[in-house]
Design a protein around this nucleic acid. Sequence first.
RNA 1: CGGGGUGUAGCGUAGCCCGGUAUCGCGCCACAUUUGGGAUGUGGAGGUCGUAGGUUCGAAUCCUGCCACCCCGACCA
Length: 493
Amino acid sequence: MSKGLPKRSEDYSLWYNELVKRADLAENSPVRGCMVIKPYGYSIWEKMQAQLDKMFKETGHTNAYFPLFIPKSYLSKEASHVEGFAKECAVVTHYRLKNSEDGKGVVVDPDAKLEEELIVRPTSETVIWSTYKNWIQSYRDLPLLVNQWANVVRWEMRTRLFLRTAEFLWQEGHTAHASKQEAIDETVQMMNVYAEFAEKYMAVPVIKGVKSANERFAGAEDTYCIEAMMQDGKALQAGTSHFLGQNFAKAFDVKFATKEGALDYVWGTSWGVSTRLMGALIMAHSDDNGLVLPPKLAPIQVVIVPIYKGDDELDRISDKAKEIIAKLRAKGITVHYDHRDTHKPGWKFAEYELKGVPLRIAMGPRDLENNTIELARRDTLTKETINLNDVEIDAYVEALLEKIQESIYQKALNFRNEMTTEANSWEEFEDLIENKGGFLSAHWDGTTETEEKIKELTKATIRCIPIDQKAEEGKCILSGKPSKGRVLFARAY
RNA sequence: CGGGGUGUAGCGUAGCCCGGUAUCGCGCCACAUUUGGGAUGUGGAGGUCGUAGGUUCGAAUCCUGCCACCCCGACCA
C-alpha cells in the first residue's frame, strides 16, 4: 500500500474511490457494476442494520423474506412501475447449462428455456402485493407491517462503489393499511425514523421533504425522502418512503372487508435505505487522511497501540492495557488492542486513521512511568495526555466518544448550513450552482416542464420540497410564474 | 448506451510510435539492527504483459473482436 490518499480538493471522485478501496470497505468484482463488500466495510453495514432493525421493530414491524425471482408478468401489472424499472432489469431466461461442442466450457442449453422468464427483483412491490392478496381479507388483518433485508439488482449504466452498484443490499418495508390517513402516517413515520438514524447514528444532518412528481418512485402517489449534503457540495438522497395510495392494491386486487361491511382496496406504503448509506457516511465526514467514522457506527471505537522495546516492556504495557480494556468493555465500548510486532507504531497510527477509528490510545514506557496514556481523536486529529490518577478512564472515554459523535454531526451541520443558499434570480441561481454548489433554496412554479428545463440548463434537480417549507409568496426562478414557497435544488449523486 | 482514456508481479509504473522474451518503486519472504508519526541494510521470491483471435521466423509492442475500470453525456437509489 502506498502512502497518502489523493486530496479531496484536487480530485474528489478519485479521493472517494481510493478511500473506499484503501480503507478496506469494498472493491470491484469480476462482474461489471457489482462489488465485494470487504469485512471492515461490512462491519459498518452490520452496525447500521442492527440499529435500523431495532428501530423498525420498535415501530411495530416484523421481518420476512420474499424471493429474488419475480415472474416477468408481475412487473407489468402496475403501469408506471414497469415504466420506471423495465429498462434496468436482469432477466433469467434459462435454467441449465451444458458442455459446449468444442469442449472448452459451458453454454446455455437452448432446450432449457423457461416458459415464463423471471426477472431479478429491482424492488419487491410486485411479489409482495401478489402475496398480500392472500394474506388480507378483513380490516382485522390490517395493518400489515413487514420489512425485508435483501439484495436487489438494477442494471445501471454507470456505477460507483456503494453509491450506485448493479446489485446492492437494502431493506424494504412494505405495509398495508385500512385507511389513507394511516398509510400516510406510516410513510411519514418511516421518513422520520430514517432522519433520526441519519442524524443520531450516522451524524449526517438531513433535510426531510417530498419529491416532485418528476423524482417520485415509479408507482407511488407521494415519495418522502431525506436528503444529505456531501463535502463536494452535491446532494445525496439517503432514504425514501413512499405512499403508494391504492395503486398496488388495485394492480394486484388486494381488497378487504371494512368494519362497515363494504369492500375496499387497501392503502400501501414502501420505504427503503440501502448500502448507499455507506457512501453518504464516507463522503459526509472523511478527510485527506482517510475515513472519519462516528463512534456509534465504528466497528472499532478505540484502538490501543503499545509502544515498546522488547518483550518485557510489551508485557508490562499489556498488563496495564488489559486493565483499561476490561474497564472500557464493561461500558460496552469496542476496543482493539494492536500489539502486533510486525508493524511499527507510526505505521499503525496511519492505518487506524485511514480506517477512521474514532479514538486511539498510545501507551509507551514513559506513560508507564507516569501512569498516563496518550489519547488521539480521529475527527480533530488532536492529542492529549491523560493522567490515570486524575480520571476514571472508562467514564472519560465514554464521554469523549459521545463528544466526538456530537462534534462530527455539528461539523457536518455547519457545512450543510453554509452550503444552503437562497437564490432569488436566475442569474444568481446559475452562478451559485456553478461556483458554489450545495442546496439552493428557490421558488419554483410547480410544473414538471420548468423542473426539466432547469435540469437541462444547470444539471440541478429538485431534491425535495421541504416538510418545513415556509409559506412565502414569490416568483419562479426560471419562469417568473407565482410560487407559494421555496424548494431545494442541487446537483445530486 | 454514445464520446474520450486506461489495462504490464498484490499495488503504482517504464517499455509500445520504430516487433527480438519485461524496467523501476512500494508491498511480500528471510536475517540483522530498529520501535513516542508510515524504519534501515543485505539477500530472495513473484509476470501465459486484461482476454480471444489474426499478421509475422518471432508480438507487451502491429491489426480485429470481446471484457473490465476511469472521465464526460443520457439513465438512476
